[in-house]
Design a protein around this nucleic acid. Structure first.
Lengths: 235, 235
DNA sequence: CGAGGCGTTGAATGGCCTCAACGATGGTGG
DNA sequence: CCACCATCGTTGAGGCCATTCAACGCCTCG
């Protein structure tokens, strides 16, 4: 399942990386050929089945990851055992930034769908960033992006009624997408994202379907009535 | 009220910076004398009264700030006009990181107490960071810290019952402090931090006082019963 | 075929919100 | 100096919404 490709191959487009989601969107977008020549560590690329744990809170942050396709949840736990999903990580996003400053991972990272990833040693990023301003810039941008996402989860997904939260989550899932179609998560995960119970998440989705704000277009796949959902979200 | 000091003075300990909260804790901790010599822009240092707005969402991010003493809230607004406080910024923290990547500010920054700040042009940080690895490292650490705070606000302060949230907020305010005493915010601000109403915040605080989990030790100042509050927080 | 996971739905409870009133405080202006 | 007003914290009453606990149907998988 784990397939190893050299960074040289990665850059030259050999192996699977030629199909990599937009090279321009990826962390290493700013690297030159000469940078890759200086790296000897391998980049592994592999796939996770839904429900698989990529890493856990406290694991040593030896590696960082880029998501090629798919989706993972970042989970934190409270002392009483309840969990909260603090962010989603999707295509072209980076996982494990905290490793860059020497921290162990701060979340559990668990695949929500079948997910393909690239894995690279944290040390490689650290070394390259020291001398490559563009990578440096890219890292800061990634960090800021994660921070904006975190703020948005608080203001949009943890504020207001259950109906509002669910509507905002749905709209978020189709933003920057061509179609208004999206795959839904399990109700338990939706609850953990929105700070509501599984039952309330289920009831709200069921209610949206009865009102035709959602139309099932496949197995666990739905078309959204964006204008009306927006109305609910903004109340 | 605004007093201008050159960076040279700042570093050499002239002016008010000799009393600066731990130099080692500050963003510029890693700079050498030679770095300061290369800066010609002034660093302003000034004070805000409670309730004063430092900057607003969308303002051009020409400056960044370090908090010397005091406390500010970072506020975001929803389309319906309701507000949510997404983070607190306190002594030695940095404000306006988003300016570094060219963004305008993402929040309203409003002083909660009398607050002293240092203000420096974003361009200065950008230029210095390009060539100073230690500052670079420091910036990443700051970003990660903000991100951890954001995650904690979601898991600790936006999850569970009102009693739990208030207890966790109180405990947070005295963490890393010598005493178990702290100043409380207005009830409206507490509500905006915890995602509850002003009345619920007030009721909960009043209830804690009746149970002697809080003892007033001064004007809007309280001593905390940490063990019992911890029990409530962890339920 | 039975077991288990998942989504759904019902009924009842309770916690939080809404709306309202009241006292205390502090600043303002007559 | 004091009446006046605005702000803030508190408390009450009532209602609604989300939770809790439970049951049921559907599906996959062993």
């Amino acid at each position: 399942m784990v397939k190893s490709v050299s960074l040289r191959e990665a850059w030259s487009g050999e192996a699977d990386c030629r199909n990599c989601a937009l090279r321009n969107s990826v962390l290493f977008a700013g690297l030159q050929e000469i940078d890759f020549d200086r790296i000897h560590d391998p980049i592994d690329q592999f796939s996770l089945k839904p429900g698989t744990t990529l890493y856990q809170t406290g694991d040593v942050g030896e590696y960082m990851f880029t998501v090629r396709v798919g989706c993972l949840k970042l989970v934190q736990y409270l002392p009483d055992g309840s969990q909260r999903i603090v962010r989603l990580v999707r295509s072209t996003d980076v996982l494990g930034l905290e490793a860059l400053i020497g921290d162990s991972y701060h979340h559990d990272a668990i695949a929500l769908a079948t997910t393909e990833l690239c894995r690279f040693p944290t040390r490689v990023v650290r070394d390259l960033a020291r001398e490559n301003p563009r990578l440096h810039q890219e890292l800061m941008t990634r960090w800021q992006h994660a921070l904006s996402e975190a703020d948005a989860w608080l203001t949009e997904l943890s504020t207001g009624s259950a109906r509002q939260r669910v509507a905002r989550l749905l709209l978020r899932l189709v933003r920057d997408r061509e179609s208004s179609e999206c795959n839904l998560f399990g109700r338990e995960d939706m609850g953990a994202m929105l700070g509501i119970t599984t039952e309330t998440a289920s009831r709200t989705i069921a209610s949206f379907r009865r009102e035709s704000l959602l139309v099932e277009s496949g197995p666990n796949r739905f078309l959204l009535d964006i204008p009306n959902l927006t109305r609910i979200a903004e109340e």
